[in-house]
Design a protein around this nucleic acid. Structure first.
Lengths: 227, 227
DNA sequence: AAGGGTTTCAAACGGTTGTTTCAGTCTGCT
DNA sequence: AGCAGACTGAAACAACCGTTTGAAACCCTT
C-alpha cells in the first residue's frame, strides 16, 4: 500500500497476467488486487493495452540494456577477436536467468515474458519486436562471428530452440510438475543446468541434410518409416 | 461442409484456438467458421471448456499412443538391453515433429499444443497431466535405464528443456520472425535440426555443482561427459 | 484562505461473452 | 403414414467486459 497507485497497478497486473494470461486478466481483477479504483487504469495508462505494454517495457528495456552491456564488456576485452560461443550464451541467457532468480518482481516478470513469447497477440508482438530489435542484431552478429562454420539459418534455428529451453526453464516447476515431483530449483543450479544444456545443443554436430549436400554421412537417409 | 457438424466445429475450433488463444477465441467465431449454429457447441459438447478438451483429446491420445507404440517396438527389439538415448529421443520427439509436419489438422494442432503448454489455464493443465501420465512414466523409465550415470533430477530438467525447444520448434516461424526473416522450414530439415540440438543438449557434460557447493558457477562448470 | 491541478471515486455506458430456451426440421424405424 | 429421437435455428438471458463521465477529495503553492 505504500507506493503510489501507478506502481501498485503495475505490480498487480504483472502478477495477474502471468497467472491468467493476457485476455483472461480483467481490469477489475487488477484494480481490486492493487486496491485502486477501476477507472485508475484508464486514467494512468489510457487503456488496457497500454497498461500491458507498460508492464513489459518497465523491465524489458532494462533487461536488454543489461545484455548489451554484457556483450560490450566482452567485446572490449576481446579487442576484435571472435568471442567464444559460451561467453555469448552466458551474456544473453545468463542475464535472463539471473533476473528470473530475483525474488522481487523480476521472477514473475520473466515467467510472463516466456509465456507471452509464444502467444501471438498482435499488439504485444509488435512492441516486443521493437524492444528486441537492437539486442537481436547485436547478438546475431556476435554469434555469426564466433561460429563462422555454422550456416546462419542453422544458427537461427538453434537460437530459437535455446529460447524455448530458456522459456521452459523459467516457467519452471509449474510445467515441470507434469514430469513428476521436483523441488523448486536453486537459482545457481538452474543456471548451471541450463547453460550446459544450451551449449551442448548449440555446439552439436550439424545435421547432415542442410542445403545441397549430396553426401549422407548419417545413418538414416529419409525413409518414410511407420507413419 | 461435408463432415458432420461436430467435426466441423472441432476443426474450426482447432484452427481458431491456435490463432487467438483459449480465451480470445469466442464461440461465435467458431460456429461462424464451422457454418454451424451458435447453440450447436453447447448441444454437442456441453460447454466451451468441454469443447476445448475435446479438441485436445482427439489428437493427443492418438499422439501419445504412437509414442508408446514406438517405444514398445524399440524395447522389443532390444530384448531388455538399455536403449540408446538417441533412439528414445527420436521416439518421443520424432513422433511430435512428424505430426507437426502433417499439413492436415495435425500441424495446427501441434502448434496449439506447444502454445498451451506454457499457458497454465487450470482446467487444461488438469486433463493434460492426465493425458500425459502414462507416456511420461514409460519414457522416464526408459531414459533412466539408458542414462544410468545421469542423476535423475538432472535428467528431468533436461527433459524439460527439450520440451521447451520442441514447443518453440513447432510454434516455429511465427515467433522466429523476431529473429529475422526465415523461410517456412521443410519438415525434414526441421526434424534433423531439432534432433541434433536435442541430443547435443541431452548429452552435454554435467554441470559441476550438483551437491552443496557454495562456489559461484559463473566461470567453468567443468564436468565430465554425460553417459 | 483561496484556488487550480491532480488524483480518486461511484455509477453508468454500449458491447460481447457463454449459456439457455423453445419452436422447428430432419431422420429412421415399425 | 406416423411418430419418437436426434439435430438445427433464431432469439433472448444474465453476467461481465473495457471505457467514459462528472462530481467529490486531495495536495500544494500564493
Amino acid at each position: 500500500m505504500e507506493p503510489d497507485t501507478r506502481s501498485r497497478i503495475l505490480d498487480a497486473a504483472e502478477a495477474l497476467l502471468v497467472q491468467h494470461g493476457l485476455d483472461a486478466t480483467t481490469l477489475r481483477m487488477i484494480t481490486t488486487e492493487a486496491q485502486a479504483n477501476l477507472a485508475a487504469v484508464n486514467y494512468h495508462f489510457g487503456s488496457k493495452e497500454a497498461l500491458i505494454e507498460a508492464v513489459f517495457r518497465r523491465r524489458l528495456t532494462w533487461l536488454n540494456r543489461q545484455r548489451i552491456a554484457a556483450l560490450d564488456a566482452l567485446e572490449a576485452e576481446a579487442r576484435g577477436a571472435p568471442l567464444k560461443p559460451r561467453q555469448i550464451v552466458e551474456a544473453f541467457f545468463g542475464v535472463a536467468i539471473r533476473m528470473a532468480a530475483d525474488t522481487g518482481g523480476g521472477r514473475t516478470f520473466m515467467r510472463l515474458l516466456g509465456r507471452t513469447y509464444t502467444e501471438p497477440s498482435d499488439f504485444v508482438r509488435t512492441f516486443l519486436a521493437e524492444e528486441y530489435a537492437e539486442v537481436i542484431t547485436r547478438f546475431k552478429a556476435a554469434f555469426f562471428k564466433a561460429l563462422p562454420d555454422v550456416p546462419q539459418e542453422e544458427f537461427l534455428w538453434r537460437f530459437h530452440f535455446m529460447m524455448g529451453a530458456l522459456s521452459y526453464a523459467i516457467s519452471g516447476a509449474d510445467a515441470l510438475r507434469l514430469l513428476g515431483p521436483i523441488d523448486e530449483p536453486d537459482p545457481d543450479a538452474l543456471y548451471a543446468r541450463l547453460m550446459s544444456f544450451l551449449i551442448g545443443g548449440l555446439r552439436a554436430p550439424l545435421p547432415a541434410l542442410v542445403p545441397a549436400s549430396p553426401a549422407k554421412p548419417l545413418k538414416k537417409p529419409r525413409g518414410r518409416r511407420a507413419a
